[in-house]
Design a protein around this nucleic acid. Structure first.
Lengths: 149, 149
DNA sequence: CTCCATTGGACAACATGTTGTCAATTTGAC
DNA sequence: GTCAAATTGACAACATGTTGTCCAATGGAG
């Protein structure tokens, strides 16, 4: 198995582990990894956005993100607001409940995050991140991407 | 966003890119990323295994892998053989057609793989892989895992 | 202004994988 | 040998995300 296949395998495994860990850590808050990711993207962007923009930021399809947004709206974690620039594309904003959920989620992972930074080191984490991004970019250059991702 | 969150985000993005790229590269062969992964796991193990063992090797659940195996069996890429040690747990083996498909898939990614190794370097790829494995291990130590993964 | 290409949302079908549950089988402790 | 625990497969429900398609709304070229 060459080094690319090896890293690919490791990425698949890490992806599964991260999703599974996220689900466990935020279950008490009534979240899942998918919901948390979208909430965090909203918190991070610090402004209201239409669903399609959120999807672009996250590298997912509009449709997938819309499904999660509808779930979050059912739980009153987010709300849709009228968009003065576009009648159909409603703006998505965090509600106070949503902001509390994001804060609680960050608190829930804090200890584990610190442990990882301490044992592996910020530098190696950033190097791994840079390598993965370069690999993703090389793949993107070599293959056509669809509408969104 | 701390370094762990940053790397997590990068892993999610890389995972999506790899799956999408795999799907494109092996579409002509009649495969998908999921089917290819299972076929490759079989080729790599170099022996016939029950479905549950394959799942363990891949870090997935039996049920998910079984679904893929049934699809592969429909396409005659694999076959189930009697297991002398266990009446229910049939052994899964690659058929000649399955072996051809794996070989064709490897050929399809070969050029891209070489390009990635050339531009990023084997050393950095291995370092990223090692870092991801360490992070996965730290997460595993801190959280209960279910039956299989 | 008109036309059309782009963007955005909604709906449906599907792919991938997990979780829950049950029965069959094997295995190990006694 | 017997019985409990662990393993395996099968089936169902669900979570997550993609793809395909259609329509609405916007915006830019002419």
């Amino acid at each position: 198995m060459d080094d690319v296949q090896q890293l690919t395998h490791t990425v698949f495994a890490a992806n599964g582990r991260l999703i599974s860990a996220g689900n466990q850590l935020v279950a008490d808050i009534g979240l899942t990894s998918a919901l948390w990711q979208v909430l965090a993207a909203l918190e991070y962007s610090n402004e209201t956005l239409p669903a399609a923009s959120i999807a672009r930021n996250m590298g997912l399809t509009r449709q997938g993100v819309q499904r999660v947004l509808d779930l979050l709206a059912e739980q009153s974690m987010i709300e849709f607001k009228e968009n003065p620039h576009h009648r159909r594309a409603k703006l998505v904003g965090l509600t106070p409940k949503g902001k509390k959920a994001v804060a609680a989620a960050e608190k829930a992972v804090d200890s584990l995050n610190k442990q990882i930074i301490k044992k592996i080191g910020a530098r190696r984490l950033r190097e791994a991140s840079a390598t993965l991004k370069e690999m993703s970019a090389l793949i993107s250059e070599n293959l056509q991407r669809k509408e969104n991702p």
